[in-house]
Design a protein around this nucleic acid. Structure first.
Lengths: 254, 254
DNA sequence: TCAATGCGTATGTCCGGACAATCGAACTAC
DNA sequence: GTAGTTCGATTGTCCGGACATACGCATTGA
């Protein structure tokens, strides 16, 4: 007969600093997340009821709930009415984020390099104008980049940006990623509409990426919006499927 | 000189039914979402401050905040301290959900058809056993399906499931999607780890999908977890890129 | 033996209030 | 005229309590 699946309640030492400007619920959620990451809270273990937890920390229940809720939203915890809150099993981590290729590679220790092929201003073609929500033939930035790892080309990136948003210095573009430049320019990235497909490489694409003509390529088209809903970037990317694939984690919206 | 970008506060008739079992915050958020979808709340318009809104509806501010917060989480609204809450510009809609190919096609009016090629029980190969978190060579379900639209093959789906979770009737598999069967069996889908790539079709793959050998294929590998973190499904899918691409919307986690 | 009932427990929902932090605009001083 | 300041408006955070609802388990009944 298998053992019962619910681990016992775990008790660990949590504390909050009321003099800190960091919100209390955030302090708590960070400590809980660290405990989960660190293994102090094992998958399946119960978190102990909210009332008692609040009392132990000298917080109110709404504050504790807010901390727990943020972790539920991240997919780290599951609440069950009448049962309690428990840590999700398995190595289900890292929800899907609006990811930057540059950051992804750097996080993977790949030391990405970028070669800027084009950095200019052009009149917007119809399709790009529609995606960015600007007038056709109005001026937009156009940058083309080759992203390399270990000296080998990995992706070809073509991006369009509305004018005046960010200063596109070629040197900076080669040193860091586009998203970092945009964030540094005070743009709050909010959401993106993506489309991922595949197709056979044309001759020029193949040449750029060091593949044979007709080889399969992974393609991605993306329009990125800031927090007011303005389109701030449109890009078409092609990846060498032998060197890159999209990996992400989805959460079901309740 | 351009006009100021912030539209005036919009006032519309909202109401809640206290006798309904539907939570008040949910009633409100649904009405607001409908107003946004319907166009009564135009992009950029301010929602009016929370206090006054609460008073007008006879609700408390926390309840109103909960309603608004749920729409902020969905990406429909933006809060700005000292300014107010406004509707996001643009047609930024539909966040990314853990999607079912079957449902996606049906929503697109494609009338999907499914042909079950294999529906059997096999000893789990090492890779599948690891993904599902079961012992190697323990028994797992294996189903292979061909998904067609307009009589043409569109995708080849190979899935593995742990035993005992859901009753895999071939007739039902041809009539509906796997996720629907799982939900109907009481499984609460929670998250999935996906990997999307591309490669050239092998001879047998090409034959199955009606492509030429060497043609580019879009590939997807997915492990799905339920709300306790158990793996409940592992699948490898191949799509004809001329007939399918992945489209989704990402939200940035604040 | 097995099903129906009741109870404790935990989360879900909701209230009303308080103060802090931040933004934008009007205002003031130079 | 311009720069800095003040101030009103609005969301952000937090409290303490109340009742509703659902789940799991033990008890009871057939």
């Amino acid at each position: 007969m298998p053992k019962p699946e619910v681990d016992p309640t775990v008790s660990l030492d949590l504390s909050v600093d009321r003099s800190s400007p960091v919100p209390l619920y955030f302090q708590l959620s960070q400590q809980l997340e660290a405990a989960i990451e660190h293994g102090a809270l094992t998958p399946g273990s119960l978190l102990g009821n909210e009332i008692e937890l609040a009392a132990r920390l000298g917080l109110s229940r709404p504050t504790v709930r807010q901390a727990i809720q943020s972790l539920v939203d991240k997919g780290l915890l599951v609440r069950r009415r009448g049962v309690g809150t428990q840590v999700v099993h398995s190595k289900v981590r890292r929800p899907l984020e609006l990811s930057s290729l540059f950051d992804d590679l750097e996080a993977a220790g790949q030391r990405p390099a970028t070669k800027v092929l084009v950095n200019t201003v052009v009149p917007a073609p119809a399709e790009i104008a529609a995606a960015l929500g600007v007038a056709e033939d109005s001026e937009v930035h156009r940058i083309e980049r080759l992203r390399l790892t270990h000296g080998e080309p990995m992706a070809y990136l073509c991006n369009y940006l509305p004018p005046g948003l960010v200063d596109l210095d070629t040197g900076q573009l080669e040193a860091t990623g586009l998203y970092r430049l945009m964030r540094a320019a005070g743009i709050t990235l909010h959401s993106a509409r993506q489309s991922i497909g595949a197709r056979a490489a044309t001759t020029s694409e193949a040449e750029r990426l060091g593949e044979d003509a007709g080889a399969p390529l992974l393609t991605m088209e993306r329009t990125t919006f800031d927090d007011t809903g303005r389109a701030v970037e449109f890009g078409t990317h092609t990846y060498r499927p032998s060197r890159y694939s999209f990996e992400f984690q989805l959460l079901v919206r309740p």
